[in-house]
Structures are given as structure tokens and as C-alpha cells.
Design a protein around this nucleic acid. Structure first.
Lengths: 243, 243
DNA sequence: AAAAAAAATTGACGTGGATCAAATACAACT
DNA sequence: AGTTGTATTTGATCCACGTCAATTTTTTTT
């Protein structure tokens, strides 16, 4: 279960390694002190849930380290993984800013340390520091752009093309395009979560992977992926116009 | 072509009927004066385009009256209609707030009068009036929630269910649920645009409509729709859990 | 009113991907 | 190592939907 962190190794907002990657980088020292006083820090293990779809907004969750997946489900049990959050990412701000409950749930995928800041604290920071609001505006506006991209992709591209796209996104986030043209890295997700991100079933995911291996576009072994030709992979979702 | 509006009947921000429905309702008189000086008002006819996907952001577009559709397309010519904007709605703010170019285009569907406010004016208003930023935060956060809903819907529901959902949305926006259980109203869209909103082809749209008529769920004649049983229509996308 | 153009419908057909069911591989305990 | 539970793969089948082509209907133009 999750535990409240305390003791000598206790984290705080001033020494937080990921603060400069988060929205809080615009806060003054005084504001940072407030944030530090109000934060609730917890360690989570895979399978735990930060918040559930439908819950009233309990604040924003600031990921210090680990991996969280944001999932949206419907009544019949279908669901999609909308995105992944790492150290430096914040979750739950959409609900807070919209003045709603959560419309997705956040599930822990890898052992994580996460701070929660309650709604009133965030609101008072927003009111006293306009720069924070602008930061959030930018984040939300960018997310909206990405979400709209995804709407188009999901309705026009094949499962294979969407998965190729996902691989490139994951490569840029969790691997690195070292050697010219090829790359190898560790996927942060199990098969069924890959399927969930692409918006398909594990069965179709499995078959898609198999076919891509046969075509030599990618090689999978467990969570390890080898991409021999990144250009070719990109062509899967960005086809040539002049054929 | 679009024309610059002037003369005695010239509109202005103070007398604008739709201002209190827009973000600008939080502006002071001074700020409203600035807005009024800087606005560029134009009349548009169907088929014209306010801005294209890929264009650098030229500001926000404030719809006074008419109907605008926001469309996103890819290289192969696929496209989806993301949403519709009426009098009181604002367009293009996402690009401005994200600091990007437009990632969708805005096409005029019915004769419209639209004001454009250039980026620097909006930015200075945002800087001097924090309430405006909060308004935008709320709008963008709500849109993001809706977009994420759509991602889930598009990947899990059938064309027919999505269309049933669209009909209810359009009814609430362009018709009214007068008589208990039934309703009749005028669709603001042609068939191919309905298809585009649902994320399907005109052919499939046509067949879906036909089947719904056979099932007695809806009756179409041109753009006129009769919905004899709204509850039944809702069941198409919100199925019973206890069967 | 006739002609031309555009929009919508219908038909025929193929297939990507969902579904159901079973087999295999893998991981975690004891 | 053996057992049990879970994740992944494979197989077989089906159908919702996209695609292409041909009409028909509606709208626009002259």
C-alpha cells in the first residue's frame, strides 16, 4: 500500500529534482514554501490508483518519479490509455481548472513518488501568480491540440499505423535515437496497455506486432524493442505523397 | 467574398448581443474599448475559411452570428469535423494560448459575422485581467475533457451509436426537447458534414440513417429530423446495464 | 424549364479488426 | 521443481465499415 513519506530522507519542494521541469518552476520562494507545507507526498506501487474517473477533484498530483497511466473507461468496460506521466508531469489539473470531477483515472504503472496539492492551495497560487495560470494555459492548450490530433488519427489510421506512431512517441520519451536510423529500447508498457493506448484489443495488438516483425520493421522480445529502420517506421504513418 | 463591415449599422463590442455569452464578459469598460478599437469585423459566406490548418496564429475569432465548423485534416485528405461554433463562441484561442500555429481550420457553414482580435491585443488583455485567463482556462480544460471523451467514444462505439449521440448533442444545441419524449428540428449540417463529425464516410452515414428510419428511431427528410422517442435514441449510446 | 453540377443514395464487394475459445508462455509463490 | 495465476499468442469465425462504381435526387445555373 501507499505510505506517507517522512524522516531524514523526506523529499521537499526546494530540493525536488523535477521541480524545474514542472509548472512550479515559476513560483517565488514564498509560494514554494506554501506549496511545500501543503503537499502530501506518498509512495505508490503498480496497480494503485491516484484517483478514479468520477471522483470529485482532490487536487493536482505532481509526479516526482515513476510512471502513471491516465485511463478513461466507459460503462461496458472498454477503456483507452490516454497518456503516460513521468517525473515532472502533473496530473488532475484538467478537472481542477474545469471545475469538474475527474473524467479519467490515474493508475500507477511503475513504483512512483507523487505529491498531492489540494484544490484550494492550487487556486490561491493561481490567483496570486498569473504566470502560473499562463503555464497551465499553455499546457492545457497543447494537450487539447494533441487530443484533437488523436481524434483524427484514431478515425483515419489503421491499428498498425497508430502503433507505429506510438512506437516513435515512446522511443522519443523512453529511448533515444542513438545510431543513425536504428534504435533499441525498453517499452514501459505491457502488451495490453500498448493495445489500450492504440485503441485496440490485446489480440489485435499481438497480431500487429507479429506482422511488423515479419516485415522486418521492428523486433520484439518481451518489452525490449529493436527498430532497425526508424525512417521506415515513420513511413507507416506518414506515407509518401509522391509515389 | 468577405467584406469589412462599416457604416451606421456597424457593430461594436458594447452593443454586441453575444458578448455576455463570450469570454469578454469579464472585461472592464476600458478593456472593452481597447477590444472594440482593435477588432476587425467581417461578414463571411458559406465555403469561406477563417483560417487554415498550419497557418501561424492570427488571433482569436469571435463569432457574432452564423455557424462555423472546425475541421482537422491529414495529408491523405481524410478529415473530421471537430466541433461547431455559433454566435458567442470564440475560435483560434487554442493556437494562441499554446503559442503554436492553427492545428485545425475553420470553415464557414452558414452566413456569419465574425470579429478577429490579433494576438498581441489578446495577450495584453490576458496580462492585465487575470479573470480573462481563468475564463480561458476553464474553456480549454472543458474542451480537453470533451476531446478525451471523443477519443474513447470513437474507439469503442459503433458509427450508429456515435451518430445517435451526435443527434442528441445537436438537438440540445439547435432544437429543443419540447414535447415529452419526442422532438423535431432542423440539422445545421449536410450529410457529408454529419459523416465528418461522426468520423465516417457519407456512404456509411446514409446507410446508418436508413437503418435508423427502418427501426423507427428517427425520421429524416432533408435536414429536418423527427425523433419520436428520445429515450430510445439515448439508449443507443448509453445501453442498459441490467438486461 | 432545361441543362449542368453537386449531393445523396444504393449496390456489390473486400477486409481490418473484434470476438470467442483454446493453447502456450511467463511469473510468482510455496 | 511444481503449482497456480496471469499475460500473451494463435486459431477460427464473423461482421461493421470502407471502397469503388453506378444511380438517383437535389440544387444551382443559364
Amino acid at each position: 500500500m501507499s505510505v506517507q513519506v517522512s524522516g531524514p530522507e523526506a523529499p521537499n519542494c526546494f530540493t525536488c529534482q523535477t521541480r524545474d521541469r514542472s509548472e512550479w518552476c515559476v513560483l517565488s520562494d514564498d509560494e514554494l514554501t506554501l506549496l511545500d507545507q501543503r503537499r502530501l507526498t506518498r509512495e505508490y506501487v503498480p496497480g494503485e490508483v491516484l484517483f478514479h474517473e468520477g471522483d470529485p477533484c482532490a487536487g493536482v498530483y505532481c509526479v516526482e518519479k515513476g510512471l502513471i497511466g491516465v485511463r478513461k473507461s466507459d460503462a461496458e468496460g472498454n477503456s483507452v490509455l490516454l497518456y503516460l506521466a513521468n517525473g515532472g508531469d502533473t496530473l488532475g489539473y484538467r478537472a481542477l481548472l474545469a471545475g469538474e470531477g475527474y473524467r479519467a483515472s490515474a493508475e500507477v504503472l511503475e513504483p512512483s513518488r507523487v505529491c498531492r496539492i489540494n484544490p484550494s492551495t492550487v487556486r490561491s497560487l493561481l490567483e496570486q501568480n498569473p504566470a502560473l495560470g499562463l503555464r497551465y494555459l499553455k499546457i492545457v492548450a497543447t494537450s487539447l491540440g494533441n487530443a484533437e490530433d488523436k481524434i483524427l488519427h484514431n478515425t483515419t489510421m489503421s491499428v498498425r499505423a497508430r502503433f507505429a506512431h506510438l512506437l516513435i512517441v515512446l522511443l522519443d520519451k523512453y529511448g533515444n535515437r542513438s545510431k543513425a536510423g536504428s534504435a533499441e529500447f525498453e517499452l514501459p508498457l505491457a502488451r495490453h496497455d500498448l493495445a489500450s493506448m492504440v485503441g485496440t484489443t490485446p489480440e489485435s495488438m499481438s497480431r500487429t506486432i507479429k506482422k511488423m516483425e515479419q516485415d522486418g520493421v521492428a523486433k520484439f522480445s518481451g518489452r525490449r524493442v529493436h527498430l532497425p529502420d526508424i525512417e521506415a517506421l515513420i513511413q507507416e504513418f506518414e506515407p509518401e505523397y509522391f509515389v
